[in-house]
Design a protein around this nucleic acid. Structure first.
Length: 869
RNA sequence: GCGGACGUGGCGAAAUGGUAGACGCAAGGGACUUAAAAUCCCUCGGCCGAAAGGCUGUGCGGGUUCAAGUCCCGCCGUCCGCACCA
């Protein structure tokens, strides 16, 4: 049979159409088969898919198709995380309405995803900006409110004084607003919170049940929740002259053992005592402004140089009347954690030490290695963080001297408790989830403010509260706040004029339950509880590691909240989690330092040349594909030139899925050549025009037949195993091995019919094995091989265990751990016989010259290690 | 700053504590061709050697073990998250 080149352009659209018409990937909510729910994190509709999407959705697709072939009822849906700031930025910069921009982007990206040939049930698609979707979200929020899961309280936001608008952390650059350039201020606003911190312990302990999550993600969540067992206690305060003040200073610490090392107290710039002090001091006012300019980002706060100002008040040491500790307002103390106040123990905390050195405060070591000469023991510029708790003891600490750290904690906690100035307290770092955003393009928060009735929830009958469309972004700030007509409503309770809440939800809410909605996307309820009970939890969830904490933790919380109000019957949304790596690419710069797009760079022997200017290009490291560095490859271009299968194959090859993958032209071309190679080999097999006689094939002892069949069945066993474990790169290496074996077999002359049958068996199996990865090529090969039905409906190939067993094994002979020889033995050979044979091997005899054998270690069927000296 | 990960040939990588480098890419040599492309065959961590074989080698320094890329301790480097980006 003559083999023409495989032309993906026409073939791929043909099969996509076939699948759609056959409804191949529609999931049924009732089936006798076991269910399997595979989900990739849904995309933000930025307008075009990027290579990260290609990687993410290819992985999910392989799993979906593989599970379908294995006989599962598979749910593999797609939707859009469609609210968010970029739509507003487009509205400001390009004068297009967020809604128009978003839905146009969705349409474009849907087409792109479809061109990848994904096995998705598109009948379940929705966008989070669909009023139908966010209406259910509003209803659930009210249900949460009634169930006591919601709270309204004051918290800080970044405020741009010029644009008169609230800024996200990413919009604060070096303490200034990104558009106005004005120094950021902090402002207090009454905001809505979901009380996730009430669930800290539950969210922490349930991590132990998530055995199919990466350990690193569980660890990150554990640290994020940040459970600590400590002590909360109060200092008595006095003024400069030693007069006792009415106020007390309450601090939280986990290191109460170091109380005698305390040399100062530090409180947040937003602490009530700091605020009180600003009234008298301009210095303190200025300091507070300086802290405000850091914004609300914890990262910025913690990276900033440790600074503070004395407040002119002092804390009396609880156990030593001769000591008093100056109280500072400091920029590194977070108002949101513990009490917003700490005592500083510079010897044993790096931040405290940096601070103490800057302001010449005392540094008193109170924990030292046993046997240290205390009088000469000094701390330099590195705090002593005692890791080996058995090797240290308390010093310089009066009644604690000589104790272990743990005992000292006990004693201090008991004394404070007995004296009524302190109590043991378990603390969590996890804060409540602030969900209010002062923005237009989000889900309206379904509440009404009435002067008489206060905050009133919108009646269910009036839901959804739909975003008004007649808005403008001419002025900075939230258009909803300026929309008098939309804002004005009558109070549901007293019917008097009232105002709508103009804040919208954090988009993390939208993404905290979409996976449950996919089970019954058209239900009149937020979720159909039975459908969710059938499909949930998601069996395999795939997404970027950047979501390891927030999205995944919020979803875990939200599902529990939904359970509490009766929508769901389970606790954990994601049974197995996989976090894939990024797609990176080399970066290129011109002689003048500008970034250059890869398409504009050509390789001339060992130099890189700019095809537009002809000038030399400087090669930079491979980095995450980004618009700013211009190192972006457009998936459309790749699919147009090589086809989706080639792009998919490349994404899965070589690099383990959890690691960053570098996109290279050479790699894509390699994948493309492999597609053509398969096509040629399958064509050759089809040309043999033979059908398999199972009896004849399995009874053949012909060496080539046995060898090829062994390769085929080893590949079947290995590929299935590797895909199940998401080791796609290994699965692909096994596919290459099978292709190499088939090619070798096909190059033999005068093949008997049995060998042709073995070749057909290899080819048909091969197509089945790569079908989840290259589904279009698989359909085309399936057809050429005259197999029945569609490849996407075919069962996963089954391997014959008997063909995997070999009666001979190659055993490695080591002397003192170094390989000296290889020997063949029958499988399961006697230990003594093996040992004896090894010792007679010429290499072994030579190497052992002059040495005496002390011990021989035999690992059956693997290795012999002769210990000699 | 705090938290988390990663580090193996020219490159992407593989390796239940048991033969380091499977598989792929690139490179070099050869076959086919008028030529090129495509395809096919061979070589391919480093050093010594004609070969057999030997020495060395998994970021760096120690340790455990008959045996360490793998386990433990300490460094170095790179990347990700830090609560209003999604």
């Amino acid at each position: 049979m003559s083999t023409e080149r495989y032309n993906p352009r026409s073939v791929e659209t043909k099969w996509q159409k076939t699948w759609t018409e056959a409804g191949s990937f529609l999931a049924s909510n009732s089936s006798d088969k076991p269910k399997y729910y595979v989900l990739e994190m849904f995309p933000y509709p930025s307008g075009r898919i990027h290579m990260g999407h290609v990687r993410n959705y290819t992985m999910g697709d392989v799993i979906a198709r593989f599970r379908k072939a294995c006989g599962y009822n598979v749910l593999h849906p797609m939707g859009w995380d469609a609210f968010g700031m970029p739509a507003e930025n487009a509205a400001i910069e390009r004068k297009v309405h967020p809604k128009v921009w978003t839905y146009e982007n969705i349409a474009a990206m849907r087409d792109q995803l479809k061109s990848m040939g994904l096995a998705i049930d598109w009948s379940r698609e929705f966008a989070t900006c669909d009023p139908e979707y966010y209406g259910h979200e509003q209803r659930m929020f009210i249900e949460f409110y009634k169930a006591g899961l919601v709270e309204r309280k004051v918290s800080m936001v970044n405020w741009d004084p010029v644009d008169q608008t609230v800024l996200a952390n990413e919009q604060v650059i070096d303490g200034c607003g990104w558009r106005s350039g004005a120094p950021v201020e902090k402002r207090e606003l009454a905001q809505w919170f979901l009380k996730i911190s009430d669930m800290s312990e539950e969210l922490l302990s349930a991590l132990d049940t998530l055995t199919e999550w990466p350990e690193k993600v569980r660890l990150m969540q554990r640290n994020w929740i940040g459970k600590s067992e400590g002590l909360r206690f109060s200092f008595v305060l006095e003024d400069e002259a030693g007069n006792q003040l009415d106020d007390k200073l309450t601090v939280y610490t986990t290191r109460h053992d170091t109380i005698f090392g305390a040399t100062f107290c530090a409180i947040s710039a937003d602490h009530a005592l700091t605020r009180k002090a600003t009234a008298q001091s301009e210095v303190i006012r200025d300091f507070q402004k300086e802290c405000a300019a850091l914004g609300t980002s914890e990262e910025a706060i913690e990276r900033a140089e440790k600074k503070g100002v004395p407040l002119g008040i002092y804390a009396r040491h609880p156990f030593d009347e001769t000591k008093r500790l100056p109280v500072y307002a400091a920029n590194f103390v977070l108002i949101g954690y513990g009490e917003g106040a700490v005592f500083g123990c510079p010897a044993h905390d790096q931040r405290d030490l940096d601070f103490a050195r800057k302001y010449q405060l005392d540094v008193i070591p109170v924990v030292a290695p046993k046997g240290t000469d205390v009088s000469s023991f000094k701390v330099g510029n590195e705090a002593l963080l005692d890791k080996d708790t058995t090797a240290v003891q308390m010093v310089n600490s009066q009644f604690l001297d000589g104790m272990s750290v743990a005992d000292a904690k006990e004693v201090v906690a008991n004394r404070m408790t007995d004296a009524g100035i302190g109590e043991r307290k378990t603390n969590y770092r996890l804060r409540d989830w602030g969900v209010s955003r002062q923005r237009y393009w989000g889900c309206p928060i379904p509440f009404i403010h009435c002067d008489d009735c206060g905050v009133v929830d919108v009646p269910f009958n009036d839901l959804p509260v739909v975003l008004p469309e007649d808005i403008s972004f001419d002025k900075p700030g939230n258009p909803l706040e300026r929309h008098e007509q939309w804002k004005s409503v009558s109070c549901p309770k007293c019917k008097k004029p009232a105002r709508r809440e103009t804040d919208t939800f954090d988009t993390f809410i939208d993404s905290s339950w979409y996976f449950a909605r996919f089970c019954s996307p058209h239900s009149a309820q937020p979720v159909d509880t039975d459908a969710a009970s059938y499909w949930m939890p998601v069996d395999q969830y795939i997404g970027g590691i950047e979501h390891a904490i927030l999205h995944l933790l919020y979803s875990r919380f939200f599902v529990r909240a939904m359970k509490q109000v009766g929508h769901l019957k389970f606790d954990e949304p994601f049974k197995s989690l996989f976090t894939q790596g990024m797609v990176i690419h080399e970066t290129y710069r011109s002689t003048t330092g500008e970034w250059i797009v890869p398409a504009q760079v050509t390789r001339d022997t060992d130099k890189l040349i700019d095809t537009v200017t002809g000038e030399k290009v400087t090669l930079g490291p491979a980095e995450k594909m980004s618009k700013s560095k211009r190192n972006v490859i457009d998936p459309d271009d790749i699919i147009e030139q090589y086809g989706a299968d080639t792009a998919r194959w490349f994404m899965l090859s070589d690099t383990p899925p959890e690691r960053d993958i570098e996109w290279t032209e050479a790699g894509v071309v390699g994948a493309w050549r492999f597609v053509q190679r398969i096509w040629r080999l399958v064509g050759q097999v089809a040309g043999n025009n033979i059908s398999i006689d199972p009896v004849l094939l399995s009874s053949s002892n012909e060496a080539h037949v046995v060898e090829l069949r062994r390769s085929t069945h080893m590949a079947i066993a290995a590929v299935g195993d590797d895909i199940s474990n998401l080791r796609f790169n290994r699965a692909i290496a096994r596919v290459y091995e099978l292709v190499n074996a088939l090619a070798t077999s096909l190059s033999l002359d005068n093949s008997p019919d049995e060998l042709k049958m073995a070749q057909r068996e290899a080819a048909v199996s091969l197509v089945g094995l790569f079908a989840p990865m290259m589904p279009h090529l698989a359909e085309e090969c399936w057809q050429v091989l005259r197999c029945s039905g569609l490849a996407c409906d075919a069962d996963w190939p089954v391997h014959d265990e008997r063909l995997l067993i070999s009666d001979k094994i190659t055993l490695v002979v080591q002397i003192n751990g170094k390989k000296r020889a290889e020997m063949e033995f029958a499988k399961g050979a006697e230990r003594d016989a093996v040992e004896e044979a090894c010792l007679r091997h010429e290499n072994v005899v030579r190497s052992l010259d002059g040495l005496s054998v002390r011990k021989v270690i035999v690992v059956p069927d693997r290795l012999v290690n002769i210990v000699a000296g």
